[in-house]
């Protein structure tokens, strides 16, 4: 038995939301492809729309730091998500991942569900400003619960400021940085986070291909549009800066 083993057996007792910007996202009035399909497709999809919760203030009850452990579920529990600056009350099961709640409960279909195993990056959103995988995050991990405020979630829908596209979105349009478009929301969130971080550090001008490649290392594009995506991310650094894109800031 090694010394390490003995120690493991012996033991030793020596040790002892951010402020929310008001929601800028105006309700979409235009006819979208998906909206059109839903309306013309009949009642089946209406249920999803009916279940959309109304935006309301987060009702998190402060509780003392001491107390018993909270037990949630296994059924759905009421929780608050802070998505694109808006607190949203929603019923969440412990096993629900963030991507399913965003898409199926909140109707935010911009975030894509690709591999569902953290391998493709299509579901990338920002959690407290950092690119995160919505398929590998339990929704309750980022929800407001008793005593804990919700973490700020930003999806691709929260990237534009009203009708003004985020510089990355504009650059993706200008540089034709997509083919089928399935990876685009995730790509945008990874690239825009790099953009915002560099801008906050005053280093936007020095963003190079190496930084872009690192930022999108977790985003797969089956069409192989990488050259245009990288070109767009580099071009965005040179676009005029849009005012305060995104909600909740970037870490």
């Amino acid at each position: 038995m090694s010394k390490g083993d003995l120690n493991l057996l012996e033991g030793d007792s020596q040790l002892s939301a951010s402020t929310l910007p008001p929601s800028e996202a105006a309700p979409q009035a235009e006819v979208t492809r998906r909206g059109f399909l839903k309306q013309s497709g009949g009642a089946a999809s209406a249920a999803a729309l009916l279940s959309l919760p109304k935006a309301s203030a987060a009702a998190t009850v402060p509780v003392p730091a001491t107390g018993p452990a909270q037990v949630l579920g296994p059924g759905a529990v009421p929780a608050t998500l802070l998505v694109n600056g808006k607190p949203q009350k929603v019923m969440i099961e412990p096993r629900d991942t963030l991507v399913t709640v965003l898409r199926d409960r909140l109707g935010l279909l911009g975030t894509k569900l690709g591999c569902d195993r953290g391998g493709c990056g299509a579901c990338t959103v920002w959690v407290a400003g950092a690119p995160s995988l919505a398929c590998m995050t339990l929704a309750l991990d980022v929800a407001g619960l008793a005593g804990q405020p919700p973490q700020a979630i930003t999806t691709v829908e929260g990237l534009a400021k009203g009708s003004v596209l985020h510089p990355l979105q504009q650059a993706f349009v200008d540089k034709d940085a997509l083919q089928c478009g399935f990876c685009t929301p995730g790509m945008l969130m990874s690239c825009a986070a790099l953009h915002e971080q560099a801008r906050a550090a005053g280093k936007l001008a020095s963003v190079g291909e190496k930084e872009v490649r690192e930022a999108i290392a977790g985003n797969l594009c089956r069409c192989g549009a990488y050259p245009h995506i990288i070109e767009a991310a580099l071009a965005a650094a040179k676009l005029p800066t849009a005012p305060a894109p995104g909600k909740g800031g970037v870490k």
Binding site: G67, A69, V71, L72, G73, E93, P94, R95, L138
Partner: peptide, 19 residues
């Protein structure tokens, strides 16, 4: 994924107690 409950302990001791 099977359904499960989510316990949120406040302290390390509570986490170990729950285990």
């Amino acid at each position: 994924m099977n359904a499960f409950s989510l316990t949120i302990p406040r302290t390390i001791k509570q986490a170990l107690d729950e285990l």
